[in-house]
Design a protein around this nucleic acid. Structure first.
Lengths: 219, 219
DNA sequence: ACCTGAACACCGTTCAAGT
DNA sequence: ACCTGAACACCGTTCAAGT
């Protein structure tokens, strides 16, 4: 009759739809890793169809990671002074990492070569140039800030992935140690537990920009 | 006759033998991940026997990671001045990470709670205390240095795991980008490729100790 | 007390077959 | 041209059975 049978029709896939599904999956609370198979069922397609559009899962993960870098970059006020641009980029990256932990955990271990990454690198190099650094110092400060931001993103992603409710603490559990062998830990352990991860990482960013300011001043 | 049949006898396992096998496996060129099953065959035992001694693979990986932290720590000259102790600890950690990439890749994503980790934390806190920092600054500098070292270790491990021959470059491939959109990358790309990863990370360590010196001086 | 081995519930990926 | 589905070669982990 007029009722069309609910026949399983072929699904049309494309990279954008796959990326969108990947982001949605990664944002689901409790999801700490993306699997090609789960992505397939989310898309209503055979899991292996994804290999029509991405060479490998790593390739897909790179695309997803570049997406969150591009998203972070897009939220930076390009008219702000150099240190503020760096601050915003780092801060936005941490926020995006917390939103998509299953993607951000890869950030230390993957390199995207995509527009998001290139744009972020360009921003950082340019900011340190504007700060007035020498060529060598530009490169070194960039590298330090980049590795700091990426490891921060991965760390925050880990924390959010394994304890979706918990929130914010830099350490998963307080450090308990024999005060005789580890007097400093005994003394500062509580203080370490109080550290909020984002605050801590942003303090690191400040230390790096501060170092750049100093290096520029002594030229 | 006198020739005993090569009967498969039960194997005696213990945590130390498992750890030793894990280290050996991780040190094999081209091995980028440890698998319980491969560990089992290395030990001549059923893979699942490992679960008699470690609650889970994560538990085992934590023990292995703590082992490399303890090894790095043991190579630090405890009599050296504070900044030299920090330098040595960071440098040894990078060396051990390069030796056992399949273990070190976990460093950003795992926390061991073992003596290696505790000892390293104690050393860092104590060094920054000796530097003359305030309580807050001790904690912040420690956290920055720790995350820098661990992400450095993971990064180096990644590089060594995926390109066992290559060596040393911070970036896996030169950054190629349209000079119109990415003028800074076009200008500094070559210089970035020249960076040796260990040098770069050690420069980061210097920047952190330098920041500590400055903070102490202005008290 | 501790190792074995079958079994479970997963993975990423290839490739011939369909349409 | 692109999706399907069987198949391959793996995973980590549980648990009853052996000794």
């Amino acid at each position: 009759m007029a009722v069309k049978a609910a026949v399983r029709t072929k699904v049309r896939l494309d990279p954008d739809r796959i990326i969108a599904a990947g982001l949605e999956l990664a944002a689901r609370p409790g999801v700490s890793a993306i699997s090609v198979r789960e992505l397939g069922t989310m898309l209503g397609a055979d899991p292996t169809a994804i290999y029509r559009h991405f060479r490998s899962k790593d390739d897909l993960m790179r695309a997803l990671l570049d997406h969150i870098l591009a998203g972070s970059l897009a939220e930076v006020d390009a008219g702000a002074p150099w240190d503020e641009r760096l601050r915003q980029l780092a801060e936005r990256t941490l926020v995006w990492a917390a939103r998509y932990p299953a993607i951000a955990v890869e950030s230390v271990v993957l390199t995207t070569h995509g527009p998001g990454e290139l744009g972020a690198v360009e921003l950082m190099l340019d900011a340190f140039r504007e700060a007035g650094l020498s060529d060598d110092e530009i490169v070194r400060h960039y590298a330090l800030l980049a590795s700091h931001s990426l490891s921060g993103a991965a760390g925050i992603a880990r924390a959010r992935a394994e304890a979706p409710g918990e929130e914010d603490a830099w350490l998963d559990e307080p450090l308990i140690a024999d005060p005789r062998r580890y007097p400093m830990i005994a003394r500062y352990g509580a203080r370490l537990s109080e550290l909020r991860d984002v605050d801590l990482l942003m303090r690191g960013v400040e230390m790096i920009t501060e170092s750049a300011r100093r290096a520029a001043a002594s030229r």
